[in-house]
Amino acid sequence: MTRTPRATASLAALALLLVPLSACAAEPGTERPDGTDLTEKVEPEGGSWPEENPEEVFEKSAELPADFPAEFVVPESALVDDAGSRGPGVWFVVFKASDDASAALLWDEIVSAGGFTVGDETETGDGGRSATLSVPALEVTAVTLPADDGAVLLSYDLVSVGS
């Protein structure tokens, strides 16, 4: 059987394609020189998780920090779920509303009472909403988080602007 130059070139090109592909993945049971099976999932020494967080990391406080900014007006009807300070000039507060309608009213009351400008407002993937609220002294990241029971958390991260 005689091969034409075209057939020989095609076979050579096919061989060049197949050789690198055969080296891409380790075959089951393949071992490295140190004896480690390349197909086996290996967890780090001591397990997959570091030491557990201490309990105080998860404790909530329903009281606003003493230095919480007055520019962020907290409505009297608001139920504080958690609040605190993350450092100088940085705070957070989380409110809990019983349903979507109550959450929307609380959101609007906070924006109105604080005289905030609302920017970057979007709907979140879970049906909540997020926005950036701003006044000259503060920039606030606001997010609502719907819960499975119908309640809604309203989370606000505040950062002092200038001073």
Rank of each mutant, 00 (worst) to 15 (best):
S160Q: 13
E31Y: 02
T2A: 00
S112T: 03
L153R: 08
A9N: 12
T117I: 12
L138R: 06
E31C: 05
R86Y: 14
L18R: 10
G46D: 04
E45T: 06
E43G: 06
P54I: 04
F116N: 02
S134W: 01
S112I: 02
L105Q: 02
L138D: 08
E40S: 07
A83E: 01
S160H: 05
W49E: 14
V135Q: 12
D82H: 10
D67H: 09
A62R: 05
P20R: 05
N53H: 12
G84C: 00
D149W: 10
E139Y: 11
E123G: 03
N53E: 04
A62G: 13
A97T: 03
V140H: 09
V152A: 05
P44V: 01
F68R: 02
L79G: 06
D67Y: 13
G115V: 08
G125Q: 09
S160P: 13
A12P: 03
G84M: 10
A147K: 09
T2G: 03
T122I: 00
L106Y: 08
G150P: 13
F116C: 01
V57S: 01
S160A: 14
P44D: 00
A12I: 01
D108W: 08
E71V: 15
A113Q: 03
E109S: 02
A101S: 12
E139S: 13
V161C: 12
T4Q: 09
V135W: 10
T124M: 03
S48T: 02
E109D: 02
V74Q: 11
L79H: 01
S77Y: 08
E63Y: 14
S77D: 09
T30K: 08
T30N: 07
V118E: 06
L38H: 01
K60I: 11
A101Q: 12
A66M: 00
G35R: 15
R6F: 05
P65Y: 11
A7C: 13
G150E: 11
A104M: 00
I110H: 00
D67M: 06
V161K: 15
V73Q: 05
D34N: 15
G47R: 05
D148L: 14
V135I: 05
Y156D: 02
A23I: 13
L145T: 15
A25Q: 13
V19H: 03
S112W: 08
V74E: 11
K96F: 04
P20V: 07
S77N: 12
E45I: 05
T30H: 06
V19F: 15
T2R: 06
W49K: 15
D126Q: 06
D67I: 13
F68E: 10
V74L: 14
Y156G: 04
A131I: 13
V118H: 04
D67N: 14
L18G: 09
F92P: 04
P146R: 05
E51K: 14
G162S: 15
D149Q: 02
A66S: 11
W49A: 07
A13K: 04
A103Q: 09
L158G: 11
T124K: 08
A12Q: 09
L64C: 10
D81L: 10
S61F: 06
G89A: 09
E45L: 02
F116G: 06
P54H: 00
